[in-house]
Nucleic acid binder design. Sequence first.
DNA 1: TGAACATATCGATGAATGTCAATGTCCTGC
DNA 2: GCAGGACATTGACATTCATCGATATGTTCA
Lengths: 119, 119
Amino acid sequence: MTGARSVDAEVGVCCPAVLGSPLSEEEAADVAKMFAALADPARLRLLGLLADAEAGEVCACDLVGPLGRSQPTVSHHLKVLHESGLVEREKRGTWVWYRVVPERVEALRAALLPRDGRR
Amino acid sequence: MTGARSVDAEVGVCCPAVLGSPLSEEEAADVAKMFAALADPARLRLLGLLADAEAGEVCACDLVGPLGRSQPTVSHHLKVLHESGLVEREKRGTWVWYRVVPERVEALRAALLPRDGRR
DNA sequence: TGAACATATCGATGAATGTCAATGTCCTGC
DNA sequence: GCAGGACATTGACATTCATCGATATGTTCA
């Protein structure tokens, strides 16, 4: 597995609207991957911790404790979130800082919008 | 349910804001279950088909074909969507009609809202 | 250079999940 | 009642995934 495929370089901010029209198999798989990143309690809590941070970012070292999982597990979940584009990472010295990508979250919300005012 | 924070059993309309504050393990598990319902291409397409229906509802018999999966598989996915509260079902005679629950979708969108205007 | 620390990756394992064929349940019409 | 159709459930199988311990990589500092 060449890990060369950095997602946030390739994933645009916009995504097809789930409720706007029937999705093709391909589109559905793409959006599903984003939702899958949120389909785990640990990752939801991580996202909440990041969003709640005063500084807008959190050091990975400060996420292991509150999550109550091992360091490799937290690292794994952060990787999933990062690959989904919902989170970005920045290495500063020994530490790695993570923060939410608001545009990506907003894109997710937009995907849940119906096409018109129909209910 | 021990949560005073009304994660609201399962079928309630409201749900805790993922980005509003760090979620407890219990809350996170509950919300994660909702996102998990969307973390599959087949179910996303089902939801799209329902949302796109002119009549606002679709007979299960009209979902098997477009999805390209077996009838038991479609039935399984519809069950997952229904149990998440995103979809409701109504049996009329031999057929079962499914439709999106807009309030639940909106609740999901709300869960992705940051607590304040912070970015 | 080496010790200490932060993070990522690897390998293994148990659990959850998507899928289908076979079967069961319920309804309608004869 | 009986036959046939619509939908759900069951059982089996392969795949994916969350988790952890062990280990590797990379950085700082003495």
